Amino acid sequence: MFDPLTIAVAVAALGIAAWCGYAAFKDQPTKDWHLIGMAVVSLAALVQMVIGIVRLAQGEDPHDTTTVFVAYLVGAACTLPAAGFMSLSERTRWGSATAAAGGVILAVLQVRLYDIWVGAGA
């Protein structure tokens, strides 16, 4: 994989989680700026998915199975859009909390993607 992008997506996802978590703490729903930030991070996760698939097509293999790796790539790319749509359906503080949870989940998925690619952990 491309480690700097994985780190950047994880850090940005935690930033979104903190930002949306603060909005939930302040009893505010997600705003347009939150959704724009989530879209930018989602775009980075989408770029990561494309890079991962290209690396697989070039013959590189993850330490774990390819199917698991691709499933995590797709899941990571879909996490924040799903959380964003869910936060739009709940226009209260809980929508912001949902978006914050999506950011945390994306960060955890980044760690797991790294583990699958290099074989760290088990």
Rank of each mutant, 00 (worst) to 15 (best):
T6K: 06
Q110D: 10
I105F: 10
S42K: 02
V104Y: 07
T30S: 14
V108F: 12
T92H: 00
D32I: 12
V11I: 15
V118D: 14
G102Y: 06
A76T: 09
A45Y: 04
A122F: 10
G102W: 08
G95I: 02
T92C: 02
A107M: 05
A100G: 07
G75Y: 06
P4C: 11
P4H: 06
L5P: 03
T30D: 09
S42T: 15
E60N: 10
Y114E: 13
W33I: 14
Q58F: 03
L73W: 11
K26I: 04
G84N: 01
V54E: 05
A101F: 12
V40Q: 13
A101P: 01
V108A: 15
V41E: 09
A39M: 11
V111W: 04
A57Q: 11
D61F: 00
V108L: 15
D64A: 14
I116H: 05
G75N: 06
V47P: 01
W33E: 13
I105V: 14
D27Q: 10
L73A: 12
V108M: 12
H63P: 00
A45Q: 04
I105N: 03
F85W: 15
T66I: 09
F2K: 13
T67M: 10
A122Q: 12
L5D: 06
I36N: 13
I7A: 15
M1E: 11
P29C: 08
V54P: 00
H34R: 09
D64E: 14
M86G: 14
P4F: 06
L46E: 14
V9R: 00
G95C: 01
E90R: 07
L35N: 13
W117I: 03
E60P: 00
S42R: 00
D115C: 07
Q58H: 03
A77L: 03
V118F: 12
I53R: 10
L5S: 05
E90G: 00
V111C: 08
R112C: 05
D64Y: 12
F69D: 00
A45P: 05
L46H: 07
G84T: 04
M38D: 13
C20E: 13
L14Y: 09
S96Q: 02
V40N: 09
M86W: 04
E90T: 11
H34P: 08
S42Q: 09
H63C: 10
A101L: 13
G121K: 03
D61C: 05
L35H: 13
A120M: 03
L46N: 11
V68D: 08
S42G: 15
V104N: 01
K26T: 09
A39W: 02
W19N: 14
M49F: 09
L5G: 03
T6P: 01
R91P: 03
A77N: 00
S89C: 06
W94M: 08
A17S: 12
A82D: 07
A83D: 10
A71V: 05
A12V: 10
L46W: 09
G52M: 04
S87L: 02
L5R: 03
A120Y: 04
A45K: 00
L109D: 13
M86L: 14
Q58M: 14
C78A: 14
L35D: 10
I16G: 09
A13S: 15
